[in-house]
Design a protein around this nucleic acid. Structure first.
Lengths: 199, 199
DNA sequence: TAGAATACTAAACAAGCGTTTTAAACGATT
DNA sequence: AATCGTTTAAAACGCTTGTTTAGTATTCTA
């Protein structure tokens, strides 16, 4: 237990908030998991909401870093589009339950929505939209494709499974089915769906 | 105010639970909106959770009724698939915020998950999966298409927008943009994505 | 080494929660 | 008219919540 109390609180909050959300996680529980006092949350973060905000910023920073690697600006647009999907799945594999954290915030915004969520989503959405626009301009995606709609649908397919994780693994998919092929499946549907050549 | 207290409680709970979710809605607030006493919730529904469960059942019944109309068993499979998407959008148009209610439960299951959510999702997912299987068997969708994956992706595209409604309207889509064309756009991507003829 | 700033804690606080209790009002039946 | 079960209301209960207070160690600085 050589980490600082602040770091232990962040780690515990990250875990508990992702698992159960803001409302169902109490300050006392975070403190217990962190092996700290509940008052330390107010001391270091100004309150429960401040701690939540800190965790959210931390996660988004990590996710954006991830996207910047998978969607590097010097790559051709189709590679960036593929990077979006593969990056999202890779991130989820490396950080299970964190995507649900973010998506829960999207589905049910807290007070962090305006200051944390909106700017970050705008950035990632812009990256994806621009990649699609470029791909259309290059003739790699069908002319007339609406980049906004196309981006929305690609993000839908890439995110929904993780969002409804609990029910998906119970009802929609076999629990033991591997998800390894899913990113390519999504990209296949996407490519053909807005591909350059009509069938 | 000629409705019964029980009905008024259900209506108020439906509205408040859809807007703010289970945790952020208090029994006292429901009672105030319904013009009733907070104790009536325990009296009629056995508690807050019972009221929540009643609302959830009510909504699912309505939604399933909707799907049974749009995905009638006597229709050809591709029409049923189209009915799934169009029905979902129509339902959302008629019952704003109710889809978010359901989706919130999917993203963050409460104790109703096993008894209410799982059976209903299984039913609708089965309808969609069977329609896709039949369409593949008829040669209307590409051979080798995995019905489960295809159903998942179609449901993803159809649901995600409503799920992330708040951020979608702020960041992803123009607030004034009409969504009228979106169901057809989704179906277009889906059809081409798993269409019979390769490009 | 004295003093000040920082790090941390136990205890108390006020507010809100869902529920239960108690009792009054109501409508139908005897 | 008296009595019944049902319905509604007010108040109180026990509990948990996030935060604050007040205080004690600990560490750093002069």
């Amino acid at each position: 237990m050589d980490e600082s109390v602040k770091e232990r609180l962040l780690a515990a909050a990250r875990r508990l908030f992702s698992e159960k959300g803001f409302d169902r996680t109490s300050v006392r529980e975070i403190a217990r998991v962190a092996g700290a006092n509940a008052a330390a949350v107010s001391y270091y973060f100004g309150g429960k909401e401040g701690l939540y905000r800190a965790v959210l910023e931390e996660i988004w920073a990590k996710l954006e870093q991830h996207f910047e690697r998978f969607m590097a600006a010097d790559r051709p647009p189709m590679e960036r589009i593929e990077g979006f999907v593969r990056g999202l799945f890779a991130f989820h594999a490396a950080n299970p339950s964190l995507i649900r954290f973010i998506n829960r915030e999207l589905a049910d915004p807290t007070s962090c929505f305006e200051t944390v969520i909106v700017p970050h989503v705008e950035k990632v959405a812009g990256l994806l939209r621009n990649s699609i626009s470029e791909a259309v301009a290059r003739g790699e995606l069908r002319e007339g494709t609406d980049p906004t709609i196309a981006a929305l649908l690609l993000a839908s397919m890439s995110n929904y499974l993780f969002l409804v994780g609990a029910v998906a693994r119970r009802v929609i998919l076999d629990p033991e089915r591997s998800l390894d092929g899913l990113p390519e499946g999504i990209l296949s549907v996407f490519r053909k769906g807005v591909a350059c050549r009509e069938a």
